[in-house]
Computed example of a mutant assay.
Amino acid sequence: MGKSSKDKRDLYYRRAKEEGWRARSAFKLLQLNEQFDLFSGVTRVVDLCAAPGSWSQVLSKEIFTKDHSPDARIVAVDLQPMSPIDHVTTLQADITHPKTLERIMEIFGGKKADFVCSDGAPDVTGLHDLDEYIQAQLILSALQLATCVLKEGGSFVAKIFRGRDIDLLYSQLGYLFDKVICAKPRASRSSSLESFIVCIGYRPRAGWKPELRPDLSTEEFFQDMGIGRARLHSDLAVDDEERKVAPFIACGDLNSIDSDATYSRGEVGRSLDPVQMPTAPPYKRALERKRGEQPSE
């Protein structure tokens, strides 16, 4: 969370720091839960692309209540290091690698997850078609792991960039879930293409056993799902294609904070300290060299 002029006047930014969240994105998951009751009955969760950890903070607070289940487990996975979070097991690992799946299942004691979420996004280039394609591939990579670790009836939530080809992704997710909904939390800026795909009621395809392998592309991973594609027969009869259209829902109180607006700071003159210092800042080596120190590995 930076300290630009706009950040200082963004009330979600200031509220996140005041309430101890590592990023303003925590409010997005809270608003999604308000709309869809995602945490009801949930005991085992996988948070993918989790750094810096604001979603894991929300999951820890919401799931580990006074009457939480003794089987409750939260696993946060990211390539970047993360500072510890109460009740959360952090893994610095690749979400596409089979060993990551094995480690998650070990932590869960061989039991499947109730909920898998991903707030990950690539470093955007400004080339919208490229950014949307890379984000779609990231979602499919997260979905690969989700299909291997998610129990039947479980839920999956991931960040998406809405573009002209997003209907194809909705359709692909519709093959595996009873409900697929595109949601826009109030905390997500309206000026951004960002939304969240909420998938409820996981149902594996009959006869299909997902297997996470590093040598398989996302297309190869899903190719044996047995999807009913449209086909024209010699007698001109047509087999209908399975396809779903995701409804769009706005989440959060419309009378609450406007994420696109900047507000006066009033008489508040003090600067709020960071909730969590950077764990691996890109400028670390430069600072060490400037001070004449030996760069750390």
Score class of each variant (00 low, 15 high):
1 M>H: 05
1 M>G: 08
5 S>D: 10
7 D>Q: 13
14 R>K: 10
16 A>K: 00
17 K>P: 00
18 E>V: 05
18 E>R: 09
19 E>F: 04
22 R>G: 03
24 R>P: 00
35 Q>P: 00
42 V>R: 05
42 V>H: 01
45 V>Y: 01
51 A>M: 00
51 A>F: 00
53 G>S: 03
54 S>V: 01
55 W>Q: 01
55 W>R: 01
55 W>Y: 03
55 W>G: 00
56 S>C: 07
58 V>P: 00
61 K>P: 00
63 I>F: 02
65 T>G: 02
67 D>L: 03
68 H>R: 04
68 H>N: 07
69 S>W: 00
71 D>P: 00
74 I>G: 04
76 A>Q: 01
76 A>S: 09
78 D>Q: 04
79 L>D: 01
80 Q>Y: 02
81 P>M: 03
88 V>S: 05
91 L>N: 06
91 L>T: 06
93 A>Q: 10
96 T>R: 10
99 K>Y: 07
100 T>F: 04
102 E>T: 12
103 R>E: 13
106 E>D: 15
106 E>K: 15
107 I>S: 09
107 I>D: 06
107 I>C: 11
123 D>A: 14
124 V>A: 15
124 V>G: 04
127 L>H: 13
128 H>V: 09
131 D>A: 10
132 E>K: 06
133 Y>G: 00
133 Y>K: 10
136 A>W: 02
136 A>T: 13
136 A>F: 06
139 I>W: 01
144 Q>V: 07
147 T>R: 05
147 T>I: 06
150 L>T: 07
151 K>P: 06
152 E>W: 03
152 E>F: 06
153 G>R: 12
153 G>M: 10
156 F>H: 07
157 V>G: 04
158 A>S: 14
159 K>E: 08
159 K>P: 05
159 K>L: 08
160 I>W: 05
167 D>V: 09
178 D>A: 15
178 D>K: 15
180 V>W: 09
180 V>K: 11
182 C>R: 14
182 C>P: 04
183 A>K: 06
184 K>Y: 09
185 P>G: 15
187 A>N: 05
187 A>H: 05
190 S>W: 07
192 S>K: 13
195 S>Y: 12
201 G>V: 07
201 G>I: 06
202 Y>D: 09
206 A>F: 09
207 G>W: 10
213 R>Y: 03
214 P>S: 14
217 S>W: 10
217 S>Y: 08
218 T>M: 15
219 E>D: 15
219 E>W: 10
223 Q>C: 15
227 I>K: 15
227 I>A: 12
230 A>V: 09
231 R>P: 02
232 L>Q: 11
234 S>E: 13
235 D>W: 11
236 L>Y: 14
238 V>M: 15
238 V>W: 11
240 D>G: 12
243 R>I: 08
247 P>F: 06
249 I>P: 03
251 C>F: 01
252 G>T: 07
254 L>F: 06
254 L>A: 14
255 N>G: 13
255 N>Y: 07
257 I>F: 08
257 I>C: 04
258 D>W: 04
262 T>G: 09
269 G>F: 02
270 R>V: 14
270 R>M: 12
270 R>A: 12
271 S>V: 15
274 P>S: 08
275 V>C: 07
277 M>C: 10
277 M>K: 13
278 P>Y: 13
282 P>Q: 14
283 Y>Q: 14
288 E>K: 09
289 R>Q: 14
291 R>D: 10
292 G>H: 06
293 E>S: 13
295 P>H: 11
297 E>R: 11
